[in-house]
Design a binder for these strands. Structure first.
Lengths: 152, 152
DNA sequence: GGCAATTAGTTTCATATGAAACTATCTCCT
DNA sequence: AGGAGATAGTTTCATATGAAACTAATTGCC
């Protein structure tokens, strides 16, 4: 017996996980950006570069791209501006003339030392909404989803 | 007794929730976009408009903006292109000449009927990585985080 | 050694984006 | 009625973005 409604799909964005993920991520990212963008005249890609270089000086632009999940054009532009503003120092690698080693200057480190605690504080405030158990779940769930999203 | 390392912050992006959220969301969104962008020559904002209009015909552009969390400029442009391609129909509201009522044409509905199941399938595949309990947690966690992100 | 194929990073170019200004319509108040 | 806001949606403009082409340096192969 045929059923006229069998093929009617219902994609309700309000319950669609990829969509909810996107809205949540945008909200959180802009909230964090507000804490530094104006005060330090820093774009999101620039801040991401500073964040990884603060924890791992001497990375190449390619390394930074890998760790931040940005593309190399974005990194190239962010680093160019950071160097121009004397926040990052660039030295050509001794063994490979194509590679530029990057590290924070004193000015760059000062920004890192200012912004990083604010960012961590904001993350903490966000996670305050969750119970300890939920925080654990979130960690596991994100790891699983990220892996699954990779090979989907 | 002073402690020299007391102020050294460690912001490791790999464990920073806002950052992980952003990477995950981008991965998932591009995976979905791949299923329709080329085949239907559809941008992400256009698809979002089609998605809400498929479920709720007669919305105004402003309604669409609210439901998709896009800004009105984005919606205006996406709708303009959709109308041009005869995928969406626009009629001036009878009671208010400023408002345009939007709905899918047959062509637009055909796209919706094609893409929506694919999108839902992709969501299902993504969630396959989680246990039923975890799926429930994810739902609650996202609701809580979203609320918290709102007033932070 | 020297030339083809790789790789790191930059630049170009065409398109996407959002804030602010704008147009058209409507609502409220007197 | 009519003029001061308010509101829906569009356009403009300056900036951001990413794919593809490019430059420079390195490696591998004959």
């Amino acid at each position: 017996m045929p059923n006229d409604t069998a093929d009617i799909v219902d994609l309700d964005l309000a319950h669609f996980v990829p969509y909810r993920l996107s809205v949540l991520s945008n909200r959180v990212s802009s909230a964090i950006a507000r804490t530094y963008s104006e005060r330090f005249d820093l774009t999101i890609p620039e801040w991401r570069c500073i964040a990884v270089l603060g924890g791992a000086p001497g990375l190449s632009a390619g390394d930074v791209a890998l760790r931040t999940a940005m593309d190399k054009v974005q990194v190239s532009r962010a680093v160019a501006r950071l160097v121009e503003n004397k926040r990052v120092q660039r030295t050509v690698d001794v063994d490979d003339g194509r590679v530029a080693r990057l590290s924070l200057t004193a000015k760059g480190r000062a920004i890192y030392d200012d912004v990083a605690p604010l960012a961590l504080e904001l993350e903490a405030k966000l996670l305050e909404a969750l119970s300890p158990a939920e925080r654990g779940s979130l960690d596991k769930i994100m790891a699983k989803l990220n892996a699954q999203a990779g090979h989907l």
